[in-house]
Simulated assay, not measured.
Amino acid sequence: MDFELSVEQNLIRRQVRDLCEQFGDEYWREKDAEHEFAWEFYEEFADGGWCGVTIPEEYGGQGYGVQEASIIQQEIARSGAAMAGTSITSHHVFSSAPLVEYGTDEHRERYLPKIADGEVMVCTGVTEPNAGTDTSQIETFAERDGDEYVVNGQKIWTSKAQEADVIMLLTRTRPREARDRFGGLTLFFTEFDRDMDGVDVSEIPKAGRGAADSNEVWFDDFRIPAEDRIGEEGEGFTYLLSFANSERISIAANAVGIGQAALERATAYAREREVFGNAIGSYQAIQHPLADSWSKLSQDELMIRKAAWLYDNGENAGPEANAAKLRASEDAIEACERAVRVHGGMGYAKEYDVERYWREVMINVIAPISNEMVKNYISQHVLDLPRSY
C-alpha cells in the first residue's frame, strides 16, 4: 500500500474540511446544549454530494470505498463536530451497505438515489435492551402475513429515529435455537417515521452528542412489505456481519478525529496561557503528554489507512479493523482527558469545548462493540487462543 493519500483523497479531505469550517465549535456547542438536531450541517453536507460517498454511481452516489469514507468521518470529527457530526452523516457507510450488496434492483432504485442526494435519512434498528453484545438474543419478531411482515418488539440506541425516513431493521423470523443462535435473523430496509402506525419513539437522555438523538423504538403490529426484506429470510445476521469491519474502521476514524481536535485545542491553549511568567506549553509536564498523544493518534491513523486499504481491496481486514478501533478509541479518550487537564479549571467549562469532546469520545470504546469484545476477537482469531466467552 502507498502511505501517501492520492490527489483525489486529499481533495476530498480539503473539501470536507472547508465545509466543516462553516460550522465551528460555537455551532456544535449550541446544538449540544439545546439538544437540537444539526439540520443546517446535514443539509450543507448533502448539498455537497457527500451523502452518497459509498453508494455506487449508478444510484447517484460517488462509488468511493471505506478509505474515503473514513477520511470524511475523521475530518468531520476533527472540526469540532465530534461524534454528533459523524453520527448525523455516517448512515451512507454502514446502514445502506447491506441494501447495496444484497438488495434487489427495485429495492435499490427505490431508496439509494434518495439517500445519495440527502433526501432520505436512515436509522438502524439492531440493538435491544437484552441484545447488545450478543446479537443472537434479539427478540423483536417479524411474522409473515401474506405480502407483509408484522413486527412486534423493542429497539434501543436507535440514532436519528426522530428524523429518519427509512430504517434498516434486524428482527427474528423464527425463534432462537441453541444449535443455530444467529439463524432466523432477518434484515429489512423499509419506510419509517416516528408518526407511523405501530411505531412509538422516545429519546434517551445521554451524556453527550446532544445534536444527534438516540432513541428507544417500540413496534406494535408494525407492518413491513415483504418486498422490503433484504436477501433471504433468516440470513440477516450474515449480511450485517459482512460489513462489521467497515463500521469499526469508521468508529476508529471518528475517535482519531476527536482526539486530534482535543490535541489542537490543548496545544493552542498551552501556547497562550501563562503561569509563573511562562507559557504553560514551555513546561515538560504539559509538553510530554501532548507529544505522547500526538504519536499515538498518528499511529492509529496509519492503522486505519491499512485496515481501509485491506477492506476496499477485498482482503481480510478483521484484525486491523478491530485493532484500529481498540487503539484509536482508547488513545482518543486519553487525548481528550489530557486536553481537559491542560486547560485546568477552564477545561471543565463548556466555552472551551474540550469537555464536550471528552463526553462524546466515550461512545467509541463501547460501540458498536465494546473494547473488551474486540480483545476477545484478537485473542481468538489472531492469537489462536481458546474462546473465552
Rank of each mutant, 00 (worst) to 15 (best):
residue 191 E to Q: 15
residue 29 R to G: 07
residue 295 S to F: 02
residue 194 R to C: 10
residue 121 M to H: 11
residue 295 S to W: 02
residue 376 N to G: 02
residue 144 R to L: 15
residue 204 I to T: 04
residue 321 A to G: 06
residue 264 E to F: 01
residue 318 G to L: 12
residue 387 R to V: 09
residue 342 V to N: 08
residue 320 E to M: 07
residue 95 S to N: 10
residue 79 S to H: 15
residue 97 A to G: 04
residue 176 R to L: 14
residue 216 E to P: 00
residue 129 P to I: 12
residue 351 E to T: 03
residue 106 E to K: 11
residue 259 G to I: 05
residue 125 G to I: 12
residue 121 M to I: 15
residue 136 S to M: 08
residue 208 G to P: 00
residue 199 V to M: 04
residue 57 E to T: 03
residue 139 E to Q: 14
residue 45 F to C: 09
residue 118 G to S: 14
residue 83 M to F: 15
residue 223 R to D: 03
residue 209 R to H: 14
residue 27 Y to K: 07
residue 304 I to P: 11
residue 181 R to S: 10
residue 382 V to D: 06
residue 250 S to M: 09
residue 371 N to D: 00
residue 234 G to V: 03
residue 111 Y to Q: 13
residue 160 K to E: 03
residue 160 K to Q: 11
residue 177 E to N: 13
residue 67 Q to E: 00
residue 142 A to N: 08
residue 255 A to I: 01
residue 143 E to Q: 08
residue 247 E to N: 06
residue 287 Q to S: 03
residue 198 G to E: 03
residue 161 A to I: 03
residue 51 C to I: 08
residue 134 D to P: 08
residue 152 N to Q: 05
residue 311 Y to H: 13
residue 234 G to C: 00
residue 85 G to C: 10
residue 278 N to S: 06
residue 359 R to L: 08
residue 160 K to G: 00
residue 296 K to E: 14
residue 322 N to D: 04
residue 63 G to M: 13
residue 323 A to Y: 00
residue 72 I to V: 06
residue 157 W to K: 10
residue 146 G to W: 01
residue 60 G to F: 10
residue 276 F to H: 04
residue 48 G to F: 11
residue 253 A to T: 06
residue 12 I to T: 09
residue 159 S to H: 14
residue 228 D to K: 01
residue 92 H to E: 00
residue 303 M to C: 15
residue 273 R to N: 04
residue 134 D to N: 14
residue 363 I to F: 14
residue 51 C to M: 13
residue 146 G to E: 05
residue 263 L to N: 02
residue 357 Y to C: 03
residue 285 A to W: 04
residue 331 D to G: 05
residue 372 E to D: 05
residue 272 E to M: 07
residue 112 L to W: 05
residue 64 Y to G: 12
residue 34 E to Q: 10
residue 347 G to E: 07
residue 144 R to F: 10
residue 243 F to H: 02
residue 353 D to L: 05
residue 18 D to A: 15
residue 308 A to R: 15
residue 243 F to A: 03
residue 260 Q to K: 13
residue 370 S to A: 02
residue 327 R to G: 01
residue 328 A to C: 07
residue 62 Q to F: 15
residue 91 H to K: 11
residue 259 G to M: 10
residue 254 N to A: 03
residue 341 R to Q: 01
residue 28 W to P: 08
residue 63 G to A: 13
residue 336 C to S: 07
